[in-house]
Amino acid sequence: MTTKLEMYKTADNSKITTWFKAAPVSALPENGGACIKYKDLQIAIYKFSRRNEWYACQNLCPHKMQMALSRGMIGSEGDEPKVACPFHKKTFSLKSGQNLNGDCAAIATYPVKVEEGYVYVGFED
């Protein structure tokens, strides 16, 4: 397990080789996030219950290298879904991964799908 940023690369929906069965839907809080372990990676998954959408990104906040994004509050800026790191409230788009309120590095995002009560996260292995 590592906190190295280079480990996290945005996965393109069209190039997914592995759909990892992460957790049952019931394990995730409504309108909130949780962290899953996939190999050496920590991935934050968010359930936007209000718009029935799912997002996933690296758990590592690039600002101060803290494993914390899954514990952040989620919400929207305009239409853009976002998460705020609990440490210093840096916000990141969950679509593009861009830092919305500063000039931190972008975070890696991953596609999510839900099938038969389970959440799957896509990786390009």
Partner: peptide, 10 residues
């Protein structure tokens, strides 16, 4: 309106 944010939620 919208989905809320880290300001209005707490």
């Amino acid at each position: 309106k919208g989905d809320g944010c880290e300001v209005c939620k707490p």
